[in-house]
Structure formats: structure tokens, C-alpha cells
Design a protein around this nucleic acid. Structure first.
Length: 600
RNA sequence: CGGGGCGUGGCGCAGCUUGGUAGCGCGGGUGCUUUGGGAGCACUAGGUCGCAGGUUCGAAUCCUGUCGCCCCGACCA
């Protein structure tokens, strides 16, 4: 490709002010993307080549394990999503699915994901266990009405995703395919030149039993990963399980009511009464709203020095009820409290708060669902709210054993926690960018969409399903976050838009021009992906742009052209080789091979 | 949705306090010079100052409303 005739670069001298993180700034400055609207971007020619590179790496790896590529519609009829009972949750309120009506008033959604469509197709074309297993995938634009799009392609409203769906005759077969997919994912990310870590994850709104996320570690990441140094454990903070520190034993001479005027926070209570946060149980109040319109008030109790993990709590509450949980909110708003509660001692609530605090006139369920984290339930003597304004209380040998209480893990694991009692390894924390996520869905969708097959015994059974996503455009940006320097992008060669860029320093020099053409044509004939910067600009301009756009190799043709000598420069480590033009192709092939092998 | 910031040519910004009809750097075009690290000189094109009202002889500037973008959070995955 020639820059002047077929591949305008569109680089900028100044960094657009809208970009906060380095990868986003570089994508804009180097002309890879242009913003059209919040969270909506155009992929410019350079970017499209990166996307195509990543896509073909994915395709190659997935085809190897027997997956089949197809392309599904992006406009989905609401009825399909109503069958899976996700329409409400995905469109109402804070749902992420863009939706619209056609001229007849029929409802549609713009696809954020494709479980419904693929399951409905699978149910039609898969009849027998003999056709299983089967895995379909596609690479396509997804639409998500993100509450807050940010950081360019990291969280955008339109993005390119590889999504795959597998179908199995048994849970075992699903589990083993899931493992195979995990390995394929590792190969894919390695082939893209990325350093990733696989972590246990929450399966969120997609649902299902087991799920694993693949993270690119980077400070700009939106997720937190907890892991041990040895690699024995790694999980998303939303999912991570750990052992909290030992509580400090509470002193013997304390009992009964403690007057705690205006002391609404754990810290204030501790400071004024010579207590430690580990001796206190804090009670946080939530309201859970379900698709069935049911509203259930929740008391969540946890040791004072620990924090509630709302994802864990959400999943738990969701399981307790046979309707979908739409939304779980802390109760803080005065109006909501006044409308639904009576004599509510906000700031002084204990785990034994009376059900009578819920007003008869309220829409809420009239019993508190009491969920106790095990960090709290293991305390036999502790301090908590006395359910009376300005008072706390010492609970002596209080037990959470009755039916009123549910003891579960709703605690946020944190760095410094141990993962096993007899193991001194502690958790460390890093930020990560989620670029892939694999799920064992089980039969959730096949059941709702009636996708069955005949098993060996002639019985109709629900298909077992897995689903597997990779953020293609997100990989591109994450790769920049991991591979750049002060001068610009340093693409891993596997996903670079070109392998090499030719920079003639002075095109007015006939000798340089001739040598440039000769080298360019020779590389092209030999199927090297080469960009020729044939702009009649000064050398400095072309050097700067080449560094900015991050092509891994530069061939510089300059004064020594008269001696048939050129330079081969490596972008990432800045090493320069002076070579005879006749040996250039050979040397380049050798050097690029080394780089391909190093990265993957 | 709450908090903060910002909307002035393709990009980065100044001007606004104290109203007088828009400016700088980069980028673009033409010419000459220059040619291995974002060149120099000269000329030049390009802006309903986000939008709508209002105040005023006169509004980028003051007032009201509105839309949008970015960041933090909530939320979401």
C-alpha cells in the first residue's frame, strides 16, 4: 500500500482532549479511529487491518477445535427475548439493549448478544445426539446501551465481538469442550502477542454455572483481579473467595446497651467506645426488585471491617426467588424509608430488626430477608445496632442458626486476605481489562426456548450449552495499553496493520526513489505486508508518523542508497541494522520470524 | 441519575471578569528555498463562537432555557 494513493494516515499532531488513557489517545492521534458520538467510533483503514488480523487469528484457532463460522442477524424480534425472559431485564430501566419498533409497531432489539437467536436456530437444525457436539461462532458488531461509555473502544456502545455458542448432549461433554475452549483462548491471546491471565468470574446476566474471564493486566483496566503470587488462585474481585483476618476478641466486661449518640458509622462507634471494627456487625439494608414486581427488603450483615460484595449478594437474592431480579439497591433515600418503614432506626440497625418495621401499607414483602456473611455469623459475642436511635447493643452468645437467617458468602475479598487457613499465601490485586469470557450456560436457554435433541435412548432432552466471547476491538486497544512508548504504539507483529513500513528519506533523489520502488515491489511480490510512505515530506515527519502508528519494522532508504545500503529498524527495541539492499528481503524474513516466535 | 469540567475552523487552545462584530499554535493549499528526526519565508482558504430565546444601538462575552461531550461515582458486564 502507498500512503499517497491508497492509504492516507490521518495522524494528528495534537492529542484530542477527550481521551484520558494512553491507548485511547494513541488510537485517535495515530488515526486508527474517529469518534462519531459518545461510545461510537469509525474504524479507519489502519484499524480495520488490525481488526482483520485479530479476527483471522481467532478464526484459525477456533476452526482448529472444530467450530463453524456463521453470521446472525443483529435485529432481534422481542418475542424471542420474551421467551428467554430477558426482554424486560435488557430493555426496561437500566437495560442495555437498544430497542425500537417497526412501522407495524412490532418490537425489536439491537443485539447485545445472541443466545436467543442461536438457540432457536439450533433447536431447528439439531435433532439427534449424533449431530453433537456443535459450536457456531461469528465476528460481528454488537450494540450495548452502556450507562457510561468510556475510554474509547474499551467500553463503547458499538463494538466488534466474536461470540460463539456450543451445543452438547451432556454436561460432561460441555465441561470438556469448555476446557478445550479455554486452551484455544489462551492460544488466541498469545498469538495476538498479549499477556493475559485467566480468572474465575461471575457469570452476570448471561447466567450459567461456571465462567472464566481472560484479562489483560493494565492499570487502565476497569476490573480488579485478586491472585496469589504462585498462580494457585486468580479471580475477579466480584467472584473471589478468601478468608478474612482473625477478629480481635471482644473484652469481657462489656454488655448490655451502649449509648452511641450520633455515632452512625463503624469508625465513630469504635473510636468512642474502645472497640475494634472486627467486633462489630454492620447491617446494610437493600431492596430487591424482581421482574414479577415483587419487592423484597433485605438485611445484609457483615463484620464491621469487611465490605459487602453486591454482585455476590445480587446472585444470591436472584436464586432465592423464581423471578428475575432486576435491581438491587441500598436503601438510603429518606422518602423511600418514610413510605415503607416505620420507626426505622437508620444507623443503629441490628440483625434482629423487627419485621414490624415494614409498614402494612408498603408494597414490600413484609418479612426481612436476613443474609449473614460468615465473617459475621462466626462471631458469638459482638456489638451491633440496638434498633433504637443512638444506641448500640452487645449481643452475647447470639446465634444465627434459626430459619430466619441465611448464612452465605456475601463478602468482598481483598488484597492481603489468605485463601486457605493453613497456607500463608496472601492475595494480591491488579487491574485488568476483560478481553474474553467463557461460560458453561447449562440448559438455561435450551429450556426456555425449547431446544431439544433425541438422546441415545430415544428420549428428548434439553441441549447443554456453552457460550464464549472475545472483544475484538477491545483486544486492539488493550494491546496498545500493553505495548506503547512515549513515541507511540508498538504493535505486536501478529496484529500490526503492516509488518513493515518503508521510509524513503528524500524522494527527490532519483537513486533513492529507484531503490525504494525496487524494494517495495520485491517485498510485495514476496507477500510481505508493507506500507510505503511515499509522501514528499521531510524525513522527520515520516519517522514520527511511523513511530506513532507503531509498525514493528521500518526500512529506511537514505543517503546510502547510492551504495545500495539501507537500514532495517525495529520499532520496539530501536535496534538498527545496516544492510545491503540485496540481502534485505532475506534479513527481514529472518528478523520478523524471530519476532513472530518471540511473541507467540 | 448525582457530582465536577468543557463546548470558539480538521486538532490543541486564547478571548468572556470589564459587551464594540474573532485570534494564536498545529494541520490544509500555492510558490520559492530546504531535505536523516514533526523545516524557513511569503501568500492563501477555512468559523451561523453547540442550539434557542432574552437584555442591549450592539452579544463569543451578560441573563434564561436547552442540547451535547469528557471525567468521578451510582449503575451495568
Amino acid at each position: 500500500m502507498r500512503v499517497t494513493t491508497s492509504f492516507p494516515l490521518g495522524t494528528l499532531r495534537n492529542t484530542p482532549s477527550e481521551a484520558e488513557i494512553i491507548s485511547h489517545q494513541l488510537l485517535l492521534k495515530a488515526g486508527y479511529i474517529r469518534r462519531i458520538n459518545s461510545g461510537i467510533y469509525a474504524y479507519m483503514p489502519l484499524m480495520l487491518r488490525v481488526i482483520e488480523k485479530i479476527s483471522s487469528i481467532i478464526e484459525k484457532e477456533l476452526n482448529t477445535i472444530g467450530c463453524t463460522k456463521l453470521l446472525l442477524p443483529q435485529l432481534h424480534p422481542a418475542e424471542l427475548w420474551k421467551k428467554s425472559e430477558r426482554w424486560e431485564g435488557y430493555t426496561a430501566g437500566e437495560g442495555i439493549m437498544f430497542n425500537l419498533k417497526d412501522r407495524q409497531g412490532k418490537e425489536f432489539g439491537l443485539a447485545p448478544t445472541h443466545e436467543e437467536v442461536i438457540t432457536s436456530i439450533a433447536s431447528e437444525i439439531i435433532n439427534s445426539y449424533k449431530q453433537l457436539p456443535q459450536c457456531f461462532y461469528q465476528i460481528q458488531t454488537k450494540f450495548r446501551d452502556e450507562i457510561r461509555p468510556r475510554f474509547g473502544l474499551m467500553r463503547s456502545r458499538e463494538f466488534i465481538m466474536k461470540d460463539g455458542y456450543s451445543f452438547h448432549s451432556s454436561e460432561n461433554d460441555l465441561a470438556s469442550f469448555y476446557e478445550k475452549m479455554g486452551i484455544a483462548y489462551e492460544n488466541i491471546f498469545k498469538s495476538c502477542g498479549l499477556q493475559t491471565v485467566g480468572v474465575e468470574a461471575d457469570s452476570g446476566a448471561i447466567g450459567g454455572a461456571s465462567s472464566k474471564e481472560f484479562m489483560v493486566t493494565a492499570d487502565a483496566g476497569e476490573d480488579s483481579i485478586l491472585f496469589t503470587q504462585s498462580g494457585s488462585y486468580a479471580a475477579n474481585i466480584e467472584k473471589a473467595v478468601s478468608i478474612p483476618s482473625q477478629p480481635i476478641p471482644i473484652r469481657d466486661n462489656i454488655s448490655g446497651l451502649i449509648e452511641t449518640p450520633q455515632q452512625k458509622t463503624i469508625l465513630e462507634v469504635c473510636k468512642n467506645n474502645n472497640l475494634d471494627p472486627t467486633q462489630i456487625i454492620k447491617v446494610v439494608v437493600f431492596i430487591a426488585k424482581f421482574e414479577s414486581k415483587a419487592e423484597i427488603p433485605i438485611l445484609a450483615c457483615i463484620r464491621g471491617d469487611q465490605h459487602i460484595n453486591e454482585v455476590k449478594l445480587f446472585n444470591l437474592v436472584n436464586k432465592l426467588h423464581n423471578s428475575n431480579l432486576l435491581n438491587l439497591k441500598k436503601i438510603e433515600d429518606k422518602n423511600i424509608i418514610e413510605k415503607n418503614l416505620v420507626d426505622f432506626p437508620f444507623g443503629f440497625i441490628g440483625p434482629d430488626l423487627d419485621n414490624k418495621t415494614i409498614k402494612a401499607s408498603s408494597n414490600w414483602n413484609k418479612t426481612w430477608t436476613r443474609i449473614i456473611d460468615s465473617s459475621a455469623s462466626s462471631l458469638s459475642k459482638f456489638v451491633s445496632g440496638a434498633n433504637k436511635v443512638n444506641f448500640h447493643k452487645v449481643f452475647q452468645s447470639f446465634s444465627f442458626a434459626s430459619n430466619d437467617y441465611l448464612v452465605e458468602d456475601i463478602r468482598n475479598a481483598k488484597k492481603g486476605d489468605k485463601i486457605k487457613i493453613n497456607n500463608n499465601e496472601v492475595l494480591k490485586e491488579k487491574k485488568g481489562i476483560e478481553i474474553g469470557h467463557i461460560f458453561q450456560l447449562g440448559q438455561k436457554y435450551s429450556e426456555k426456548l425449547n431446544a431439544k435433541f433425541s438422546d441415545k435412548d430415544g428420549q428428548l432432552r434439553n441441549l447443554w450449552m456453552g457460550c464464549y466471547g472475545i472483544g475484538v476491538t477491545r483486544i486492539a486497544q488493550a494491546a496498545i495499553e500493553q505495548n506503547h512508548d512515549q513515541n507511540g504504539i508498538c504493535w505486536p507483529i501478529q496484529i500490526s496493520p503492516f509488518e513493515v513500513i518503508i521510509i524513503p528519506t528524500n524522494l527527490k533523489d532519483q537513486i533513492q526513489r529507484d531503490l525504494t520502488e525496487q524494494i517495495y515491489n520485491n517485498l510485495k511480490i514476496n507477500k510481505i505486508q508493507v506500507l510505503l510512505d511515499d509522501r514528499d515530506d521531510r524525513a522527520g515527519v515520516k519517522f514520527k508518523d511511523a513511530e506513532l502508528i507503531g509498525i514493528p519494522f521500518q526500512i529506511i532508504i537514505g543517503r546510502d542508497a547510492i551504495n545500495k545500503e539501507v537500514e532495517l529498524l525495529c520499532r520496539s527495541n530501536n535496534t538498527k541494522l545496516k544492510i545491503d539492499a540485496n540481502n534485505l528481503l532475506e534479513t527481514f524474513i529472518k528478523e520478523s520470524k524471530i519476532m513472530y516466535n518471540k511473541n507467540s
